[in-house]
Amino acid sequence: MIPEPYHGLHATIAQAGAVMVRWLEPQRRCARVRVRELTCECKARIYELCQADGLSFVRRTDRTQQGPQVMETEWLPSARAREIWHKIITGQAV
């Protein structure tokens, strides 16, 4: 049996006791944002771990019939943003 090809990272479904992430309207703080990690495009909701101006944040995009709805976490030191990213990916946060 041939395994299906890997096509990207998927966030795990929220686990019991998952913490709620505080999602905010996007901040247009700088002209250039680098996406460091992202989830697979095959889902209606995608997440991106972003970095800009020495800080990091997680961006969430919900693709709806009305168009994309974008939210993001507060801009944080990289270690803290990576912690939130890990919790989202493993279903410990939503």
Rank of each mutant, 00 (worst) to 15 (best):
A52Q: 09
I2E: 12
C40G: 10
C40R: 01
V94C: 13
H7K: 15
T73L: 06
R34I: 07
P77E: 12
P68G: 02
M1F: 08
G67S: 07
V33W: 15
Q51Y: 02
E74C: 11
Q15A: 12
Q92I: 00
W23V: 04
M71K: 12
G8I: 08
V19E: 14
V21M: 09
V33P: 06
R34F: 02
E83I: 01
A18E: 04
R45V: 15
A18G: 08
T73D: 05
A52T: 10
M20G: 05
L76R: 12
T64E: 13
R34A: 10
I88Q: 02
T61A: 09
Q65A: 12
M71G: 05
A14Y: 01
R28P: 02
V33E: 13
G91E: 03
I13A: 15
M1P: 08
V21T: 14
L55W: 01
E25M: 02
Q27Y: 05
R28D: 11
P3T: 12
E37M: 10
I46R: 13
V70Q: 10
L76E: 04
D53G: 00
F57T: 09
V70G: 01
I13N: 12
G54M: 03
A11P: 11
C30F: 04
P77N: 09
A14P: 13
R45A: 08
R34Q: 09
A11G: 03
K43E: 11
P5C: 04
Y47P: 07
R80A: 14
Q66C: 05
P3H: 10
G91K: 03
I2F: 08
H7S: 14
L24H: 13
R59M: 12
E4W: 02
A79V: 10
Q65Y: 05
L24F: 11
W23R: 06
E74W: 07
R28H: 14
Q92C: 06
A16C: 00
R32W: 05
D62W: 08
R28W: 08
T12W: 07
A52S: 15
P26E: 06
I46H: 06
E83G: 08
D62K: 11
L49S: 00
A44W: 09
Q51T: 02
R22D: 14
E37Y: 07
T39P: 11
L55I: 00
E74F: 10
C42L: 03
E41A: 13
R28K: 12
I89R: 06
R32D: 10
G91L: 04
R29D: 11
R36P: 00
R32V: 13
R32C: 07
Q15W: 00
Q27A: 09
P68F: 01
E83Y: 07
R60V: 07
R60W: 00
T64W: 04
T39L: 09
E48S: 10
I88A: 04
L38P: 00
R34D: 09
A93N: 04
T73K: 05
